[in-house]
């Protein structure tokens, strides 16, 4: 039997359509989830950094704790929501890529919110007087602080991407690992392991790792470049 690296290389080189479909779906689901989590989490995290209200501390603690939300629990919650017997059953979203996106968004959102809050809070301490002097109120400061914190924020977004692309618990429950429809790299790895096809499982793992590595390297490079370029 060929080693997993040989299998992995052959799978990639052959452009196996089933494999490409799995990789494509994994990326689509995770990137969409990251996008939504950023669209919601960046402004929300920044607002949390600048706003002062009763119970703010509790909200911060809850979001920090949710960063450790086990994926299966997130999956279970989304499953119960989207099941035909659940409150959103009529949307017929269970066992679809959309359900997987929702579950992963739930996983990434606390990371984006918490990290954004911490980055923006630090920046605000540095920028507050200057921005007020220039005529920016708290609300108007939000986009400015997000933009000036962009390099640090990218790290948080990447952490979110890493968590989502690596998790299997949530997508397995809400996606159902349906061949050609909701099978991602991680659920395929789980399946191939269950089938005792360890070579294929390891091969998929290598592909997943390579993708994650490439993305992180690109982001790190961009960060370094931005630090050098923008100070």
């Amino acid at each position: 039997m060929d080693g997993p690296f040989v299998i992995a290389f052959r799978l990639i080189a052959s452009g196996d359509p089933a494999l490409m479909q799995i990789i494509g779906l994994s990326l689509r689901v995770t990137l969409t989830a990251v996008l939504i989590a950023c669209a919601v989490g960046l402004p929300l995290g920044a607002a949390l950094a600048l706003a002062r209200f009763a119970g703010r501390g509790a909200v911060i603690v809850v979001f920090n704790a949710l960063m450790g939300l086990p994926p299966v629990v997130a999956g279970l919650i989304v499953y119960l929501m989207l099941s035909r017997s659940g409150p959103f059953g009529s949307l017929a979203l269970l066992f679809t890529p959309t359900a997987m996106i929702i579950a992963q968004t739930l996983l990434i959102l606390p990371i984006v919110i918490s990290l954004t809050r911490s980055v923006v809070e630090d920046l605000w301490a540095e920028y507050r007087e200057q921005l007020l002097s220039l005529g920016a109120g708290r609300l108007r400061a939000v986009p400015t602080l997000l933009w000036d914190g962009r390099v640090s924020l990218l790290t948080g977004v990447l952490a979110g991407f890493g968590r989502a692309s690596a998790e299997v618990g949530a997508v397995l429950i809400v996606g159902g690992n349906i061949a050609g429809h909701t099978r991602t790299m991680t659920t395929a790895i789980t399946l191939e392991t269950a089938r005792g096809q360890l070579g294929l499982a390891v091969a998929l793992g290598i592909i997943l790792l390579t993708l994650t590595l490439t993305l992180n390297a690109a982001a790190w490079g961009a960060g370094q470049w931005a630090r050098g370029r923008l100070g």
């Binding site: 969409t32 996008l35 939504i36 669209a39 402004p43 996106i101 929702i102 986009p143």
Partner: peptide, 18 residues
């Protein structure tokens, strides 16, 4: 530059996507 008026449409298009 990230401005609120650009974040809001991007959130909306994200939701439209799902």
């Amino acid at each position: 530059m990230i401005h609120t008026r650009r974040i809001i449409p991007s959130a909306a298009s994200g939701l439209a996507l799902i």
